[in-house]
Write a protein that binds this DNA or RNA. Structure first.
Lengths: 202, 202
DNA sequence: AAGAAATTATAACAAGTGTTAGGTAAAAGG
DNA sequence: CCTTTTACCTAACACTTGTTATAATTTCTT
């Protein structure tokens, strides 16, 4: 088991985290259906049967990763919003967009594994993940609502649709990468410009 | 083989189309990995082995559906643009958005099957689909370029990013339905409003 | 260092998958 | 209507998959 650990780390915890990490990477690269337990085990220098010591089965492993994916994005965005609590409303929106994109693209595979595989996991998992996702959704709803109440968003804009448009364009960057070399900050700035100032010219 | 056909229709053509139609529906509902040839055969009141008379294999069938999916969206959008050739540039953009959404949501399952399964088919299929998709991409690139040259889109807007944002928000409606009862026209209008006039308030 | 507990390997299982080749029923052609 | 061709059935195959129970190895505790 070629995994490095510190003296106070239990093997179980280190192995378990490594399995989660490597599986997340496989899910991003191959998708749910094309990632077998044997693939996962190989990526971990283990055998498939051993994975059952740590997880109840493939789907439990996958669900844990996907749940953690949403949680990580949510935590990152909340942290950033907390740190920017005194900033103007639309600045906070732009920051949230940037952090969302950074978490998806740069931080780890968990968030992107979630988005990539959501539509393909068994229905019961998807159902449970929907409510986890709804929590993060509420973060955006609150953020946009505050911005609209502060007068920063036009009153005729339906916030549900706006949230949807923003999240849609951001998450779509995982399916069809925007452009090589473009980072989260630049993406966020471009999308923010389009969504809030509009691409149109009078 | 419970399928209705007209006197001039060949059984082969009718059966083949029915297999494509029903498979597209399954792909939308279940995804690529969870749709077996036995599922498809059952949906067609056939046995799995029989599908080989019409298609070389599962992947040939799936690829044909997904290719047709892009082609249908493209054809619909091009038709609509042709019919609106005298309209102002941004009207044409809005029409294209509406037709894109209508084709995805109301017309048939082929387009949505494409989007749902794209990230999950074998890499060689995905590679070929990428170039099919690039053709449709070019339709949008041209449309937006004409609008910008006509002065309808701000000169600082990068058209590649704008196209991306628009397609992203529209295609995301397949992953996470915007709202029950909202049709393509209303969606298109809302997304158009956000993307071109901006949600912000001065 | 020894023994207990933890962690991984192993072999096997049952079920499912895409596919093939030969057979048969249905459609088409004259 | 009869014959030929077409379209579907069938049985089997080889392989893959998630999973289980037991064995073996490694880690942890005293």
């Amino acid at each position: 088991m070629p995994v490095t650990r510190k003296p106070d780390e239990r093997l179980r915890d280190v192995s378990r985290r490594m399995i989660l990490d490597r599986t997340a990477g496989l899910l991003v690269r191959q998708g749910y259906g094309a990632t077998s337990l044997r693939d996962i085990a190989q990526a971990c220098d283990m055998k498939a049967g051993s994975l059952y010591y740590h997880f109840d089965g493939k789907d439990a492993l996958v669900e844990e990763i996907m749940t953690e994916g949403v949680k990580r994005v949510e935590a990152s965005v909340l942290d950033a919003l907390q740190a920017a609590s005194g900033s103007p409303p639309l600045d906070r929106v732009r920051i949230a967009m940037e952090v969302h994109l950074r978490t998806l693209h740069d931080k780890s595979d968990y968030g992107s594994a979630h988005i990539r595989c959501f539509a393909h996991v068994p229905a019961d998992i998807r159902h449970r993940l929907r409510s986890t996702r709804a929590g993060y959704d509420a973060v955006w709803a609150r953020l946009l609502s505050e911005a609209q109440q502060a007068g920063a968003i036009a009153p005729d804009i339906d916030l549900h649709t706006l949230k949807f448009a923003i999240i849609g364009m951001m998450n779509w960057t995982l399916e069809w990468p925007l452009q090589n070399g473009v980072g989260p900050e630049e993406m966020a700035n471009s999308f923010f410009r389009i969504a809030f100032m509009g691409a149109g010219q009078d």
